[in-house]
């Protein structure tokens, strides 16, 4: 008997559930006017029909700030344009319910600018997304945030660009930046640079005693930071998904 027709024993698993991450276009809506959306959507698809036709699509209502929107009409319009909506993110309870009746699941909403999905193979060494209550440092431009006060235990700083701290960062504090981090003082807390996936970001500090350092989600904890890098001025960067700490 050929091996491929052997009956599979009933007790062997026929499937498994795994969490996977797929990339899909997201339709960020800025207008709640179905006519405008339909018109512009068709225009857009005309430009690259191969890309859009039969593609899955996530509808994101977060930017609409709970404006009224007829979900069945919107879904029809998207389907007529040749795309398959696979879920809805944001919006009001009613809009979520309307989507559910159309068999579209609600996808948990988060700010897409700070939390991009990351790939599964590195999940072990990746960090949970940043909590929403982060004290955002005041920035007038997204170039560089400079802070001259000590960052105390329990404080969290988030910078859209580079973050420069001209003081110490206490243990139990957390500093995060989408760009590079510079600490001209003792770094005892956690420093996370290149959030969420800027692998080119670096951390510079004049005295490394950190609890954790992370670049683009790859991290190293205090236990693995040893002499001669510990208690020394260093730069930290990413090379082939590995954290490299180098004395400066």
């Amino acid at each position: 008997m050929p091996s491929n027709s052997k009956p599979i024993p009933l007790n062997s698993p026929a499937f498994e559930f795994k969490s996977g991450i797929v990339t899909t276009p997201v339709l960020n809506l800025f207008s709640a006017d179905i006519n405008v959306i339909t018109h512009q959507l068709n225009e857009k698809i005309k430009q690259a029909p191969d890309f859009f036709t039969n593609s899955s699509l996530l509808i994101d209502l977060q930017a609409l700030l709970e404006q009224e929107l007829d979900i069945p009409l919107l879904v029809d319009a998207i389907r007529n344009a040749g795309m398959f909506p696979i879920g809805i993110r944001g919006g009001t309870k009613e809009q979520q319910q309307a989507a559910n009746t159309l068999m579209l699941p609600g996808i948990s909403a988060h700010s897409s600018s700070t939390h991009k999905p990351h790939t599964t193979e590195n999940q072990v060494s990746r960090l949970p997304p940043v909590a929403e209550d982060t004290e955002k440092a005041v920035t007038t431009n997204i170039e560089t945030t400079v802070i001259a006060q000590p960052i105390r235990s329990g404080q969290r700083i988030y910078a859209k660009g580079d973050l420069v701290i001209i003081a110490q960062v206490s243990s139990g504090a957390e500093i995060m930046a989408e760009g590079n981090i510079h600490v001209y003082g003792t770094l005892r807390g956690r420093a996370l640079a290149g959030i969420p996936d800027n692998a080119n970001a670096r951390i510079f500090c004049s005295d490394l005693q950190a609890e954790l350092v992370s670049i683009a989600g790859n991290y190293r904890v205090s236990e693995d930071i040893i002499e001669p890098e510990r208690n020394a001025p260093v730069q930290i960067y990413l090379s082939k998904q590995a954290i490299i700490i180098q004395n400066t």
Partner: peptide, 10 residues
Amino acid sequence: VRDSDRMLGI
């Protein structure tokens, strides 16, 4: 010391 540091932050 750590708790005091937290308090200083607050």
